[in-house]
């Protein structure tokens, strides 16, 4: 059978076009699978949960919901009366402790003087006894023994006075320690009083303000959220297939769902762990492994942290934590070539 040239040509043209189509589709599919971009990005921010450091009735709330506040601004105030009273009490305690310390100091002087008198008495008795001892021929034995006893007694009294001196010293040290204690208590009372004004720890926006005048605010229970205005960042949830094509420091294009605003940013980190959803702990502490298909596998998404370049933010931009953005990583080919 002889092949007609035209038939061969027809077949060849079609085959070439089909093969080119297959190659191009394969390339496009790879591009789709691996190009580092995602529509699954979220704006996030650091949220400070503001809780009072002291308990009490709320007497003043000078901020309103969603207000922008500067660092150090008062957010709400707790009734300070109790803490003022506590401060006065601590001050009085301090004064009392100081007076006690002075009294202890005076006591020491008295005890020292008394010890000196006892010492003099002892010296006298001792000399007396010595003299009588030396005159053993003329002084009767009874008198000499008495004199010796008197000297020993005087010595004991002197030693007692010395011990009293040590005691008085210790008492003074105790009193001085009590002064320091009272001072610390006063400082703490002042701190408590200061903390009745709950202040903003960062510049930011008041959110979910849930505190009213008259509420009872308990120590440590958060009453409002303060969003740090300098802390907005983006978490892009990239499929794991795309991770090899992005690196820390890569510039990214950010497009917000709200109004299509474009921002610039750069990658600052890749999460080094996500929960294994196929393996929660089941009953009896046994692994609860999902029976998945062998053919279909879903790429896990790994959070990649992107910091927004503030210079690229348009004026009046409203960023809310939780907004949706698309992220397109610009591969750093140019930078790599320079290297």
């Amino acid at each position: 059978m002889k092949l007609e040239p035209q038939a061969v040509l027809r077949f060849a043209i079609t085959t070439v076009v089909v093969i080119v189509a297959l190659l191009l589709c394969h390339a496009l599919w790879r591009h789709y699978l691996y190009a580092p971009w995602t529509r699954d990005g979220r704006v996030r921010a650091e949220v400070v949960r503001i809780a009072p450091d002291v308990s009490g009735l709320v007497t003043r709330v000078p901020v309103i919901d969603n207000q922008e506040v500067k660092k150090g601004e008062v957010l709400f105030e707790i009734d300070p009366q109790r803490f003022q009273i506590a401060e006065q009490q601590a001050e009085a305690n301090l004064n009392a402790a100081k007076a006690a310390a002075r009294a202890a100091g005076a006591n020491i002087d008295a005890v020292l003087a008394s010890a000196a008198a006892r010492k003099a008495e002892y010296d006298m008795r001792q000399e007396q006894a010595q003299r009588r001892q030396d005159l053993a021929d003329v002084v009767p034995k009874e008198e000499r023994t008495d004199a010796r006893s008197a000297a020993v007694t005087a010595r004991a009294v002197w030693e007692q006075a010395q011990a009293s001196g040590h005691q008085a010293n210790a008492a003074r040290e105790q009193a001085e320690a009590a002064v320091v204690q009272a001072q610390v208590a006063l400082d703490r009372a002042k701190l408590d009083l200061e903390r009745t004004e709950v202040r903003a720890p960062v510049d930011g926006y008041v959110t979910n303000l849930d505190v009213r005048v008259g509420d009872y605010a308990a120590t440590g229970s958060p009453r409002l959220a303060l969003i740090d205005r300098h802390s907005y960042y983006i978490y892009g949830y990239f499929e794991e297939t795309k991770l090899p094509h992005l690196r820390v420091g890569d510039p990214v294009d950010i497009r917000m769902l709200s109004g299509g605003i474009r921002l610039k940013g750069h990658i600052t980190g890749v999460a080094r762990g996500i929960t294994d959803r196929d393996n929660p702990t089941g009953r009896d502490l046994l692994a609860d492994v999902n029976p998945t298909f062998n053919w279909v596998r879903l790429a896990q998404r790994v959070p990649v942290r992107v910091d927004i370049d503030e210079a690229s933010e348009p004026k009046g931009l409203i960023l809310s934590a939780g907004m949706t953005v698309s992220i397109d990583v610009q591969p750093r080919r140019v930078l790599d070539k320079e290297r």
Binding site: R10, F11, T14, V18, A21, L24, L28
Partner: peptide, 26 residues
Amino acid sequence: RYVWHPSLFRVAVFFVLFGAAGLLLY
């Protein structure tokens, strides 16, 4: 006349166009 299988050819041409445009523009 120079095409062996017109429907296959048309589909293939479409994918050539789509692949090339996708790779270039996207």
